[in-house]
């Protein structure tokens, strides 16, 4: 049985195992054909892996499998070296704390009845981290970190703009000091100016906090900006995987080439 300490990872981790190592992962819903087929991926510690593919290709399913929300039918998922299927109770609790998710829709991912301050503090309460005063101080710090004014803590999600809500969702994900953060299309619903602010924020946080980031997107230019490595998924299979520049500038698979051609629709025109 692996010790639960192996999931710690992040800064000062003793292990040098990848933040995430997925091997031969097959996942299906019910009796239908599997939606992920023998997926193998590696995210080295402190790096960002961009996962791109079209709607229905299995990106969210992969993200959900990593946080243990869906069970694989075959294959393994190791987080900082620990096989998540073999964790004991304490290990699973630690995993829930050290791996956090940010979702696409900042309108539905926050509880409308909680103030921003309560929403950001909630994961600390759930994981029993800190006393009341420490939590309040940490929430203040997190708000500052994601570029939100402290006065916003007293407001409800309905009173915030889309960009502010996504910042709150990021602050909340960072609250329990995760080492691996999974972002499932976190900027797809935002206007380009706000998208750019959030992308800069994620990049800065990733560097400053030494986070490992799995960044799911259908937008290759966004992935180019954030990721060191890119994996391309089509119909539940990884069709191409490699360093950012190699995948984008010398794509091998026809599907990657089609994605790149189409991605020009969303990218900055050549003159700019």
């Amino acid at each position: 049985m692996p010790s639960s300490g192996a999931v710690t990872g992040g800064r000062g981790a003793l292990v040098t195992a990848p933040a995430l190592a997925v091997e031969g992962l097959t996942v299906g819903y019910g009796r239908a054909a599997p939606v992920l087929q023998s997926v193998t991926l590696t995210l080295p510690q402190g790096e960002t892996l961009g996962l791109v593919g079209e709607s229905g290709s299995g990106k969210t399913t992969l993200a959900r499998a990593v946080v243990g929300l869906v069970a694989p039918t075959a294959g393994s998922i190791r987080v900082f070296g620990a096989d998540i299927a073999a964790l004991d109770r304490a290990g699973r609790a630690l995993l829930r704390r050290r791996v956090q998710m940010v979702f696409q829709d900042p309108y539905t991912s926050l509880d409308p009845t909680m103030t921003v301050g309560e929403a950001v503090a909630e994961p600390l309460v759930v994981h029993g981290l800190g006393g009341r005063a420490e939590r309040a101080a940490w929430v203040d710090e997190l708000m500052r970190l994601v570029g939100l004014d402290a006065s916003i803590a007293a407001r409800f999600p309905a009173e915030l703009s889309g960009g502010q809500r996504q910042r709150v969702a990021i602050a909340r994900a960072l609250a329990p000091a995760p080492a691996l953060v999974i972002c499932d299309e976190p900027v797809s619903a935002l206007d380009v100016s706000v998208q750019a602010q959030i992308l800069n924020l994620l990049k800065r946080l990733q560097r400053e906090l030494g986070l490992s980031l799995l960044f799911v997107s259908h937008d290759l230019s966004v992935v180019r900006f954030l990721a060191q490595r890119i994996a391309v998924i089509e119909g539940g299979r990884i069709v191409e995987d490699g360093p950012r520049v190699a995948v984008l500038d010398r794509p091998q698979h026809p599907y990657t080439r089609a994605l790149i051609e189409a991605a020009r629709l969303r990218a900055r025109p050549a003159g700019g």
């Binding site: 380009v192 100016s193 230019s221 984008l248 969303r266 990218a267 900055r268």
Partner: peptide, 20 residues
């Protein structure tokens, strides 16, 4: 224009229009 990530080259930071 400056706020959109380019596809064909690497940039370290984007230059977003402030606010929303």
């Amino acid at each position: 224009m400056a706020t959109i990530p380019p596809l064909d080259r690497d940039v370290d930071w984007l230059d977003p229009i402030p606010g929303e």
